[in-house]
Design a protein around this nucleic acid. Structure first.
Lengths: 233, 233
DNA sequence: GATTAATTGTTAAATTTATAACAATGCAAA
DNA sequence: TTTGCATTGTTATAAATTTAACAATTAATC
């Protein structure tokens, strides 16, 4: 089995963490250190050192005993694995606040992942540029996507438009879609889809805060009961 | 064991899906149907019907055989589970594009989860309102958080400020933090933290698109090789 | 009224993911 | 130089999550 085959079987969670390791390592580069221990990476990412070592084992990277991992080497290896050699072009559909936020956020962050176009229906936006990325009319989607060799589309239109937008993207030959609207879309086999709705994350935080509140309240009740029992003596 | 204890042990993934089910069900409410099958929910969420049924089993909800689940009942039950009775107040720290996007996105969406304040350091923003939510100076954070009984903070400041912001939130007595910056933060025990970096999701899509491209290229090579072999005869 | 097909609810099995255990190694201190 | 200790790499175990299997049941059809 080729090395590339092994990489194809990397656990999904490992892929996510590799992206996060690289991000953390890029920040570490500034700090004049050239090596980092598994427990240091782990601390940053709120996970265990074992998990870090196991992930690195899976991608075949070896550190130096009692010295840790070479930061630059590790960044390069992770980049080899998760980046595409020739680079991948991305478009954002919907230049509202979220679209602009993503555009600012990504601009120039990754060599191999470039946002090269945005789309909107608002005439005030069409024809202008944000961060040097031109905004096209949505009606030109297929033409631009093919011309610019765009493979990934990020959907940040209003929820009511998410499905039609996904269909347009698919019809334009897109390979992957990242949907930020709260309305799930459907894509045919062969198009990779990631749904990401921000309300779910907030509701999850809310749930665990609620749980913690209730747990704390229960403890108060228990202490009160104990107190009552004790005073009976 | 009390029913509430069972709920405390709901798998994390089930919590996330419950939030998503509710969102989907709320959309379905419009469509004049009053019942929905597990396979219909599953289709919307890109998961299997079994998973849906199993999640609903865990929260103790029973549907009607061959008729499905009552949409309104199910919405109400999920709300009972994931919402806090008395409601939870939320603040957004950082009124850039992302902060504004989240504010617009959430406004009025959930009864029990209200964004009640935002913070920034830009004098042009302080004192004004977006979607009727006032923007305060970050220096007033502790005062406002205590006065407004804010329990959750969403961090959308520039990455360089994420750590100091998290510390301020913790010092103000926050219970949960949702960090949207690419720089992980640290919080003490008892504060629930969810990191969400948008670049990880995009890089994951990118990785699987790359893999699919390589797989397709491999197939072409295989076909070519087969062709070559065949032509030898 | 009997039969068929579809759907739920639940237990069991499989898969995925995370953690623990520990041998091997080599740096640092004695 | 030797000893102790921290750290890696890896296998084994455990936990979490998903999927499968299937009995039970009821609505619709014949």
């Amino acid at each position: 089995m080729k090395a590339s085959d092994t990489l194809k079987q990397l656990p999904h969670k490992t892929i996510e963490r590799l992206s996060q390791y690289r991000r953390a390592l890029l920040i570490c580069l500034d700090n004049k250190k050239d090596h980092i221990f598994s427990h240091e990476i782990a601390k940053i990412q709120h996970i265990t050192p074992v998990q870090v070592r196991r992930d690195l084992m899976l991608i075949g990277y070896s550190g130096t005993l009692r010295k840790g991992y070479n930061i630059q080497e590790l960044i390069d290896l992770i980049s080899d694995i998760i980046d595409s050699n020739r680079g991948i072009n991305v478009a954002i559909i919907g230049m509202g606040n979220l679209g602009r936020a993503l555009l600012n956020y990504f601009s120039g962050k990754r060599h191999k992942l470039s946002i090269v176009a945005s789309f909107d229906i608002n005439p005030d936006k069409i024809g202008k540029s944000v961060n040097k990325i031109p905004c096209y009319n949505i009606t030109e989607m297929e033409k631009v996507i093919k011309r610019e060799n765009i493979e990934i589309g990020i959907i940040t239109v209003p929820a009511s438009q998410s499905m039609i937008t996904a269909k347009q993207l698919v019809d334009s030959g897109i390979k992957g879609i990242l949907n930020y609207t709260p309305k799930p879309v459907e894509v045919p086999e062969g198009v990779y889809l990631e749904e990401y709705d921000m309300i779910t994350t907030l509701e999850k935080v809310s749930f665990y805060v609620k749980m913690e509140n209730e747990r704390a309240a229960d403890h108060v009740i228990q202490r009160k009961n104990q107190g009552t029992v004790a005073s009976d003596f």
